[in-house]
Design a binder for these strands. Structure first.
Lengths: 140, 140
DNA sequence: ACTATTCATATGGTTTTAGTAGGAATTGAA
DNA sequence: TTCAATTCCTACTAAAACCATATGAATAGT
């Protein structure tokens, strides 16, 4: 049902790598090799992160990528949203017009609750938290 | 990324319908018509619910379906799991052998946390809660 | 015998996922 | 000025998942 795609997982690993090399320009080739992720696939993920203002790039030889913000200011939610847009586990959670049942739809509230919970969790966790292994397993 | 499939949503609506007609044998045809869900698709969902012991059936004319347990004893988690098996937003959350990185995998903890949170939420909500519209939006 | 229902299984179209591939554009350095 | 290293851009594809539709057999009540 609820699957995290490789795009999102790779994006996070890429960004953690950048966070671990804060201040340096990092070649995608290095990320690909060290993280063992397809270079060409990574290249496809990059534009989302650029467009969302999470990373900056420099072209040409000795180019590379660098975080646009401090790791503490990048939430997992931002990363996810940069790739997949608004978080909506069902369409009717995002757009109320989607389903004519939505007025008296019993399950709707369930999906809304679950959706908010996921969204909230992802928002409270930053790249820095991941980097420092600072994820508590207690439910907030 | 994170989508609730129609199978799950239809299953829940089907079960709510059964809950609303507790004690009676219900025809799938009625569910299909009242809930406006493809009859043939519903038929495909039924076996999962039967195998998990959520519903009972009676064949032949005047047959039908009925809940096998009280609505208060059926959790959403059970319903989801009956259709999709164990809840695992990434494979490495379920089986630790899946990925050789899992020892020192930074994001793993994040997925584990999110997975547990989703799992917990679905477990605390029963069919009865849905039926009585008893879903609080506060994060538990 | 007839009808209404569940049960079993096969088939198919569309979308998403997870890549691969080729080459253009840019830049630094020799 | 040339070369090499890098990002950027776009097209393509195989496989899986999703969302059904279709056909008919088995069963049971009337």
């Amino acid at each position: 049902m609820i699957k995290i795609t490789t795009k999102i997982r790779y994006a996070i690993r890429l960004l953690i790598f950048l966070a671990q090399h804060e201040g340096e320009m990092v070649f995608l080739k290095d990320v690909s090799e060290k993280e063992n992720i397809s270079f060409k696939y990574l290249e496809q993920i990059i534009p989302y992160l650029k467009n969302s203002g999470l990373i900056l790039s420099k072209r040409g030889a000795r180019g590379g990528y660098i975080l646009a913000k401090k790791p503490s200011q990048i939430t997992i939610k931002e990363i996810v949203q940069s790739i997949e847009g608004p978080i909506a586990i069902v369409e009717c959670v995002a757009s109320s017009e989607y389903c004519n049942r939505s007025n008296n739809c019993v399950p709707n509230k369930l999906w809304k609750k679950l959706n908010e919970q996921i969204s909230d969790t992802l928002e409270t966790i930053t790249l820095e938290d991941l980097m420092l292994n600072r994820i508590s397993m207690e439910v907030s």
